[in-house]
Simulated assay, not measured.
Amino acid sequence: MVFLNLKTFLFSFIVFYTTYLYNYKCPTLSPLEKVENKVLHPLSTQHSTLCELLHGGLDKVDPYYIQLNQFLDNNIRSQPIVKQWELCAKVEATKSHLKQHVYPLLHQLYEFTDVAETRIYDELNHYYLQAEQFVYGKLKQD
Rank of each mutant, 00 (worst) to 15 (best):
K83F: 07
Q46Y: 13
P42N: 03
N74T: 14
S30Q: 14
P104N: 03
S30K: 14
G57C: 01
V35M: 15
N69A: 04
T45V: 08
H41M: 02
L72Q: 06
Q100I: 00
Y103S: 09
W85E: 14
C88K: 15
A89T: 11
L105H: 12
T118Y: 07
L58G: 03
Q79C: 03
L29A: 04
K38G: 13
K83C: 02
L106S: 01
Q100G: 01
T45Y: 07
L29G: 03
F71N: 04
H107L: 11
E52P: 06
L98V: 15
E36G: 09
E33F: 07
N69L: 12
A89S: 14
P104E: 06
T49R: 09
Y64M: 12
K38D: 15
V82E: 03
T94E: 13
E52I: 03
L87G: 00
L32T: 09
L54Q: 12
I120D: 02
E52A: 04
L129R: 09
I66A: 04
V91A: 10
V35Y: 09
L53G: 12
D114F: 05
L72G: 00
E92V: 06
Y103K: 10
K90V: 03
V35L: 11
D59W: 02
Q130P: 14
T45C: 04
L43K: 01
D59F: 00
L32F: 11
I81V: 12
N74E: 15
L29S: 01
Y103P: 12
A93W: 07
P63I: 00
C51K: 00
D62Q: 12
N69S: 09
H97W: 11
L129A: 06
E33T: 13
I120M: 04
K99N: 15
L124V: 09
Y128C: 03
K99C: 10
I81G: 07
K38E: 14
K95S: 13
K38Y: 15
L129D: 15
K34M: 06
V102L: 01
F112K: 15
E111H: 05
Y127E: 13
H107C: 10
Q46C: 05
L72E: 07
Y121H: 03
L58A: 07
H47D: 10
F71T: 03
K95W: 14
H101V: 09
H101M: 05
L54S: 04
R119M: 05
K60G: 11
L106C: 04
D122K: 01
D73T: 00
G56W: 14
C88E: 15
L109W: 03
R119E: 14
G56A: 10
D73I: 01
L29H: 05
S96G: 11
H126D: 09
E123F: 08
N69W: 08
K38C: 12
H55Q: 14
V102F: 05
K95M: 07
L32N: 12
L43W: 02
E111I: 05
G57T: 02
S44F: 04
V115P: 06
K34D: 15
H126G: 07
I76V: 00
S44G: 05
